[in-house]
Design a binder for these strands. Sequence first.
DNA 1: TCGTATCCTTCACGAAGAAGAAACACTCAC
DNA 2: GTGAGTGTTTCTTCTTCGTGAAGGATACGA
Lengths: 162, 162
Amino acid sequence: MNVVLLHWPSERSRLERLREQQLPRLLLVEPGAIAPQVTDCLEDWLRMPVDDADLQLRTRALEIRANEHIRVKPELEDGVLRNGGAWVALPPVEARLTAVLLDRIGTVVSRETLAEKGWPEGTPGRNALDVHVLRLRRRLSGVGLVIRTVRSRGYLIEVCDT
Amino acid sequence: MNVVLLHWPSERSRLERLREQQLPRLLLVEPGAIAPQVTDCLEDWLRMPVDDADLQLRTRALEIRANEHIRVKPELEDGVLRNGGAWVALPPVEARLTAVLLDRIGTVVSRETLAEKGWPEGTPGRNALDVHVLRLRRRLSGVGLVIRTVRSRGYLIEVCDT
DNA sequence: TCGTATCCTTCACGAAGAAGAAACACTCAC
DNA sequence: GTGAGTGTTTCTTCTTCGTGAAGGATACGA
């Protein structure tokens, strides 16, 4: 994973993008500027003018951390769900359900929320959701994702560990 | 979690201990010395003489990371109990009981309190609580938590040391 | 030391309810 | 037309949860 070098504060908006994308980044803090508070493991900073050895060390440290940290997140785009190389095409309803689940990956999403998001203009019968979850499960099994049920609470999606 | 400050390279052996213990640490690199290659998220360094603002920022960053990394406290949310990576889904009654126990983690909670919180609208037979504790114990064993009995006083929950 | 009352643990059973699964019919895009 | 996507019905399976009963552990008085 490549570490991105950028200037602070002049490239502030670029930094925000990188943070969202969870890419490792090293800020070169301009003379006189105050470094921002680092809040995750993929960010570090150096005050300019930079010492070359320091730059090397910190870049390398970020690379090491990034490799530990980055686990490729499953992504859903245009009805295509990708996870670690594999992918499946998802039909509209299932794509919407998956979007909600992935949005809160690892945490519980209630049936009500799923019904709302899956059928924006009025939900069908009670069992429709169950059946779709069933179908979704079968599709997801091919790409290393599982939907776990939390009884009387809802469902949660997670990356398969096996 | 407290960040340990230490000098490098004069306190090398102390650093090694801290690394083993996985405690967050900030190295103050003595003038002329080369900083060591950082390999985890709980370590950082600053070249002496240190700027006070920089020290603050890096210390705080380490604290934040440490809290993310070492999730010591078990957490219960939406019927899902998490503890150090592992999780279980808890049914309604057991979730309520666990909530009370975790709320006073490490201290005794009386059966009366448990009954009240577990069954907000009237408790069932006396034995129900015992049985639920039994079931809860089995579930909790999978996530490194134990419920201990304090005879004639109540129960307490704690993190398993094994 | 010994009984005994009390507290606690554990098991087995059954009712109620939640979720899973199969089968079928309808719709719509290609 | 054909096939995938979708919704419904129906049936099955699994989970939860309360109860009763058996037995172990502990405290305490005789």
